[in-house]
Write a protein that binds this DNA or RNA. Structure first.
Lengths: 162, 162
DNA sequence: CCACATTCTTGCAGTATGCAACATTAGTGA
DNA sequence: TCACTAATGTTGCATACTGCAAGAATGTGG
């Protein structure tokens, strides 16, 4: 691959990255008055992971357990999660989504999908097909690359951005 | 477009989104001990915008001016930016990158481009060409869509993710 | 000169974050 | 059974990010 090709593909990918981040930011905006971004991340993990103990949650979010602790406290106070001691191991306390918490996750997820759907609907069928193929190839090529220890990106989330 | 096609393209795009966010997170990791993510965003804005007054910076980052104020204070204390009163308008104080600040931005940018380059290098030339076309079409289709007031995504950044 | 707008700054409150220390509970080996 | 160790949650402390509100300094238009 020559330099021009490389620059073109990197530019295109970076531009796509900015667009996707903007979509994620907008999808969060609707619930910004109810949960913060870190709190939403915790809700998403619970949505895909079911009952989760504190240490596991901290690992999944890649934060200190004390951080996860206080976030869980606030989400519990807001009625979006519940925490109860695991009867099988009284050291652990398991946390899970309330209906209200799940509603928030679903709302944001739906909005994000809608936005992507709206964009791809503006593309021709051929372009759509090409997009699926190209993104699939890109995702496979980037599967678990240089830094296998960093498990960042394992979870379906979104972050606000400027 | 039928439902299956739609689901396939959305899944592919969302997976790509996760991968790109993971790349952004790793690219930030190298400087995580020197600047926080919001601080890095400010450096990126300065990198592309030159001398900037506080209010403008706050708008570009979409934060309150008091937030931008204190971030600027910390970056100045760290020697990554300098602030000086605008002689043409003594209300304003303009801020700009130091060499050290620019070095950090360049380092992260280079790392991100390297990671993307490494991924596309694992794709076949045909796949690469298809990726450029597909991403270009996607970016154009998503140019300035439903929410024109939200200018999120205008800046080339990255956010850590779980 | 006066009224108003712009800009920066600071006080206050709440959230996020990591480190370190601690108590409780579980497991393990003598 | 008892002591040692590990796992887990919790809290104290310090720093950073965030917005709102109030105030000071400066500029602008009359």
């Amino acid at each position: 691959m020559n330099g021009e090709d490389q620059a073109a593909v990197i530019s295109a990918v970076l531009a796509g990255s900015r667009l996707l981040v903007a979509i994620a930011a907008r999808s969060l905006g609707a619930v910004a008055d109810r949960v913060t971004v870190p709190q939403f991340r915790m809700l998403v993990v619970l949505s895909g992971h079911g009952e989760t103990k504190l240490v596991t949650m901290a690992e999944l979010l890649d934060v200190n357990s004390s951080t996860a602790m206080r976030m869980a406290d606030r989400l519990a106070a807001a009625g979006l999660v519940v925490r109860e001691v695991n009867p099988l191991n009284r050291r652990e306390s398991l946390m899970r989504l309330t209906d209200e918490g799940r509603r928030i996750v679903d709302q944001v997820t739906a909005r994000r999908r809608d936005e992507i759907a709206a964009i791809v609907s503006r593309m021709s069928p051929a372009e759509r097909q090409a997009l699926v193929s190209a993104m699939t190839a890109f995702n496979e090529a980037g599967g678990e690359p240089a830094a296998p220890t960093l498990r960042a990106g394992s979870h379906p989330l979104g972050w606000p951005e400027a």
